[in-house]
Design a protein around this nucleic acid. Structure first.
Ligand code: MN
Ligand code: MN
Ligand code: ZN
Ligand code: ZN
Lengths: 149, 149
DNA sequence: ACAAATAATGCAACTGAGTTGCAATTAGGA
DNA sequence: TCCTAATTGCAACTCAGTTGCATTATTTGT
């Protein structure tokens, strides 16, 4: 399993959890560690199969992921085929911590990556339309990820 | 019910259906007529409740909507809460016929509207990132719709 | 206008991701 | 170490969406 890896970053994960008032548990260490080491966002099914269905109850995993989202440790992205993918907010990833990011969807492997985006330059591209008041923008980029490219 | 309205645009709907090799049936006339008169995209539940659950079987409605999508008469948008909304491709709506459009999500009523977008000016805002090859962009705008504004 | 061929419909049964309730276990502070 | 509240795991449940199939409606050719 991933105990070796998790051992190495365990301190960091422990810190992230306590920082958000989440008790440090076996399940949370496993899941957050896994999310941190994965660059692409992950689904419940994916996480479940990697960690092993015998090692985490499915309900606990749902609740764990929700807890991460509620505490602002992670966020979830709804895919086109209505799956949920989870990604941690983490500065090491070339991702983000803020809301100002786009999602990159690989046409080949269908993985989703978080992506920073220049919000201000984006604003000018979408002008107001009659009656509609635009408050914020959300971008989804499609193409090929580094692995499939 | 909507028979009055549908009677008026019935010819148009019939034409759209046959054009796409779809047989003209009571259910399809009702559903396509309703989609055409609604500016915002609609969910299965919404359509079902407007037309009346006694008037259309839920399975038939699922199959009807799928048929519209497969034949290119309509497209579906997955919402953030993982519902599917359906909207016809229709030039009367200030919407679109092509793929070059954004979706506007009202923060207040949560309705989704199709929206044309200037694709070329958008391209310059998102520059390539190391390894990622961007092929297309998808925009989601959040704000207030004309009704809620 | 009629009949045959083919597609659409409606119903019942099923599927499976996600939820709820609750009792047993565990983390963390006193 | 002990206490309390949070977390976990299991079983039961929910409900949107699917599947199979017998019935019905549409289209096309005569
Ligand atoms: Mn993201
Ligand atoms: Mn649209
Ligand atoms: Zn890829
Ligand atoms: Zn609105």
């Amino acid at each position: 399993m991933h105990y070796l890896y998790i051992k190495a970053m365990e301190e960091k994960v422990r810190h992230l959890l306590s920082q958000k008032d989440l008790k440090v548990t076996r399940v949370r260490l496993l899941v957050l560690g896994l999310l941190l080491q994965n660059r692409a966002a992950m689904s419940h099914a994916e996480i479940s199969s990697i960690i092993g269905e015998d090692n985490i109850d499915k309900v606990t995993l749902y609740r764990t992921l929700n807890a991460f989202v509620e505490k602002g440790l992670a966020h979830k992205v709804a895919t086109e085929d209505r799956n949920w993918l989870y990604a941690v907010y983490e500065e090491n990833h070339e991702t983000h911590t803020s809301e100002d990011h786009a999602h990159f969807v690989c046409d080949e492997c269908e993985k989703i990556y978080c992506f920073p985006v220049d919000q201000t330059s984006f604003e000018i591209t979408t002008q107001k339309k009659q009656g509609f008041k635009i408050r914020s923008r959300e971008v989804r980029l499609h193409g090929l990820c580094p692995i499939c490219n």
